[in-house]
């Protein structure tokens, strides 16, 4: 198939950035979107131009490194799919595809389509953990966890930290990510001791990083390749106000 690509190029964080258009012939419909990008880069190399830089690693939908906003949708129009799992048979011969980086102030562009998502790490560092010294853990079966709680914790923990939630949000809010990370631990009995502290610290780290506010669009969950539910945002809201109130009276 033949494709017309409108690709964002930006030399660094301070560059204004611009679109470049390229025509790509003989794209196999069995190739993945990133393999199509590989093909583009090989073509650019032959033409003597610098290839487009984009983030990717595992190419099986789990590392969360791939990004790309494809025709306005982070990871493309397919649901529950990361860019690396998106295949070209979902496009038509002759299509024009617009490829942009994930856009948010908290995700500055490093180069071309690569953005810096370290703000997510800082949210986790603020409280996305259970303090347990290596070697001091009790037996794994010492504390039964209701299956339902464990399953719901797993639903939240499935988040791959790709940032599609932020990119899809008109306000660049990181609430879905933060709520999934906090929710996973807050749902489990192991996570109770640090729950209030965790929630307050993670939310304030999220705010400091420059993400916008949640407006309950629900777009994040629709864009999420792992279908993280909005319930975790509701839970974070609930846990946050409880923690705040407790902190006032403590």
């Amino acid at each position: 198939m033949k494709l017309f690509l409108k690709v964002w190029r930006q030399s660094d964080r301070n560059d204004e950035g611009r679109f470049e258009t390229h025509t790509l012939d003989e794209v196999s419909e069995d190739s993945s979107f990133l393999e199509m990008m590989d093909q583009l880069n090989e073509q650019l190399l032959e033409e003597g131009t610098e290839p487009v830089v984009f983030d990717h690693d595992c190419r099986e939908g789990i590392c969360g490194m791939c990004s790309l906003t494809i025709n306005g949708h982070p990871h493309g129009t397919e649901n529950s799919t990361t860019t690396c799992q998106l295949h070209m048979r979902k496009f038509e011969d002759g299509d024009t595809i617009t490829i942009e980086p994930f856009r948010a102030r908290a995700f500055p562009v490093v180069k071309d389509l690569v953005v810096d998502r370290s703000a997510f790490d800082s949210i986790t560092q603020a409280g996305g953990f259970i303090t347990v010294r290596t070697g001091s853990a009790p037996d794994g079966n010492a504390l039964p966890v209701p299956k339902n709680d464990s399953d719901r914790a797993m639903d939240a923990a499935a988040c791959i930290g790709c940032g599609a939630c932020v990119a899809s949000c008109k306000n660049a809010s990181a609430m879905l990510f933060t709520s999934a990370k906090a929710g996973h631990l807050n749902m489990l009995p192991q996570g109770q001791a640090e729950k209030d502290k965790r929630v307050l610290a993670m939310v304030s780290a999220m705010d400091e990083a420059g993400f916008g506010n949640c407006r309950n669009f629900g777009e994040c969950s629709a864009a999420c390749p792992k279908d993280i539910s909005l319930d975790y945002i509701a839970k974070l809201n609930r846990d946050h106000i409880k923690a705040k109130i407790k902190s006032v009276f403590a």
């Binding site: 853990a137 794994g140 079966n141 209701p146 464990s150 489990l188 192991q190």
Partner: peptide, 22 residues
């Protein structure tokens, strides 16, 4: 065996039976 204990304490959501055990 220590690994499982450690991971459970960290909040790794291992699959569980209805009784709540691993």
């Amino acid at each position: 065996t220590n690994i499982i204990d450690q991971c459970v304490a960290q909040g790794v959501p291992f699959a569980r039976e209805y009784g709540g055990l691993l």
